[in-house]
């Protein structure tokens, strides 16, 4: 049976179809989950895709955190279910407290839309399961608030506990310690600013993102179903 992935759609999300298509291309059965849903049961993994949830009003992710679906997402994550937040989805997960830190405005005031190199730092998270440490991938970024920040104690913890999942090779936005992606303590919740779904087909110029999405599907296939 194909791995079932729920792709959460908030009002203002705009990368949901890219995510569904990229996951489908890898053999997954991906479908949209409306943010008003209060259940995410039956999925083997969840993706919070990019965009501008609730218009990014107040702060990116600040209102999305209160969408009805987020209670179910938090429960799913607490049960060990794999959850990946891409770009705006990463911002939502930090605002919801499912990941530490915050995404502040890019250093240098620029909206950055380009392809960057990222390095895989861990092989034991929902998004990098089995991917060799040191693997470098070309993946697009597309954001204004992608500058990852956290207090010094949190940064120490992230490093000590091996929770920096991805780092930029050449920092595009000012993120502390070149951080492009982090995970929670359980390593089942991962957030990243780069868009793997936009590097998932030769037509898009890179298939490197598929390395990460395949890892997610591997995790999803083996993770205990979360209710």
């Amino acid at each position: 049976m194909a791995t079932r992935v729920g792709v959460v759609l908030f009002p203002g999300t705009n990368c949901e179809h890219d995510a569904v298509r990229a996951l489908g291309r890898l053999g997954a059965d991906a479908e949209l989950v409306w943010h008003g849903s209060t259940s995410v049961g039956g999925y083997d993994a969840l993706v919070l895709p990019g965009g501008f949830a609730h218009g990014d009003y107040l702060r990116p992710g600040a209102i999305a955190r209160f969408s009805p679906v987020m209670g179910a997402v938090a429960e799913y994550a607490a049960g060990g279910g794999p959850v990946v937040g891409i770009c705006n989805g990463f911002q939502v997960l930090t605002e919801a407290g499912l990941l530490p830190g915050a995404l502040q405005k890019n250093r240098g005031l620029r909206f950055v839309c380009t392809t960057v190199r990222i390095r895989v730092e861990r092989s034991d998270t929902a998004l990098t399961d089995g991917v060799a440490v040191g693997t470098e991938l070309s993946v697009p970024i597309n954001h204004f608030e992608g500058n990852y920040t956290c207090d010094a104690a949190t940064l120490d913890r992230l490093r000590d506990e091996g929770r920096v999942v991805l780092r930029y090779v050449g920092n595009p936005n000012g993120s502390v310690d070149d951080i492009a992606g982090v995970c929670n303590e359980g390593r089942n919740v991962v957030g990243l600013m780069p868009h793997p779904e936009r590097a998932s087909d030769p037509l898009l110029g890179s298939e490197d993102g598929s390395v990460l999405l395949e890892a997610l599907l591997r995790t999803a296939a083996t993770a205990a179903p979360a209710a």
Binding site: Q104, K105, N106, R107, G108, L109, G174
Partner: peptide, 13 residues
Amino acid sequence: LLRDGIADPQGAT
């Protein structure tokens, strides 16, 4: 307001 130590590119601009 942004905390001290957090970059404020808008204010700087």
